[in-house]
Amino acid sequence: MSAFNLLHLVTKSQPVALRACGLPSGSCRDKKDCKVVFSQEELRKRLTPLQYHVTQEKGTESAFEGEYIHHKAQGIYKCVVCGTPLFKSETKFDSNSGWPSFYDVISPDAVTFADDFSYGMHRIEISCSQCGAHLGHIFDDGPRPTGKRYCTNSAALSFAAADKSSAGEGSAARPAQTGKAEL
C-alpha cells in the first residue's frame, strides 16, 4: 500500500475536527438529527433529477452551467429542499470558479460543516442546517471581510427577489418612482 493510500485511509477513518479551524462541526446528514425531514419519495417528486442528485447524493452540477452563476438580482438565496434562507445577494461575488459563490451566510446557524475526503482531498462540505441538503463546499480564498468562499451549486438553491411588487407588474412600482423623482 502506498504512503498516500495509507494516509488517505487513516485520515478518512479519523476526520479532522472542524472546531480547530473555527467552524462548528457536525451536520444533520444523518436525517434523524435534522429539524426538517422529507421522504426520498417526496423529494424525487418535488425536485428535478439534478436537484435531487446534488442535495441528496452530494453531487455537483457542471461548472458555469448553473442557473445562478451569473444571476445579479437582489434578494435571498434559499435551500431548494426546505426553503431555509442561506445567503443574501449582497454577499454574492464572481469567483470565476464556475459556481455561485458567497462570502458570508445569512446567519451563523444557516449551514453546517463536515469534513469531506472524497476525490482524494480534504474539503469542508456545507449543508443546510435544517434539512441536511448538500449545498457545496467552503474555501478560505474569498474576499473581505470574511475571506471565505461558500462555493454553492445552483441546483441546491432557490431565489426570492427582494421586492416582489417591483419585480412584477402592478401599480406598486409607480408611486416609488414618482416619489423618487419628487425628491
Results as ranks from 00 to 15, higher is better:
K78R: 13
A20L: 12
Y119V: 14
L7K: 15
T55W: 04
S118P: 05
G136V: 05
T146L: 12
L47Y: 02
S154Q: 03
P175E: 01
G170V: 03
G136R: 05
I124H: 04
A173D: 07
F87H: 06
P175Q: 13
F113C: 03
F38Y: 15
D109H: 09
M1A: 14
L9G: 11
H70I: 03
T91N: 14
N153M: 02
K92G: 08
G142E: 08
S154K: 04
F113K: 06
G120K: 14
V16M: 13
D94M: 09
C21V: 15
F139Q: 06
G147Y: 06
H8F: 15
Y103E: 05
G98Y: 00
H122A: 10
G26P: 04
I69R: 13
T112L: 03
L43Q: 06
V10P: 01
A181T: 15
S89Y: 12
S39G: 12
Q51E: 12
G120A: 09
F87Y: 14
A162E: 10
S25W: 02
Q40F: 07
V111H: 01
S129P: 00
D163I: 01
P143S: 11
N5F: 06
Q56G: 04
A73N: 14
E90H: 14
S95K: 00
A156D: 00
F93G: 11
L23N: 03
F64P: 00
E65D: 09
Y68G: 00
L183Y: 12
S13D: 08
A63R: 15
K31V: 13
S39C: 11
E125L: 01
G98R: 07
F117P: 00
G132F: 00
A167R: 10
Q56A: 01
D94E: 11
G120C: 11
C128M: 07
S95C: 08
G75I: 09
F38G: 07
K32V: 13
K180E: 15
V16K: 09
T112D: 05
G168D: 08
K78C: 08
K148A: 07
Q51M: 00
F117A: 10
C128K: 00
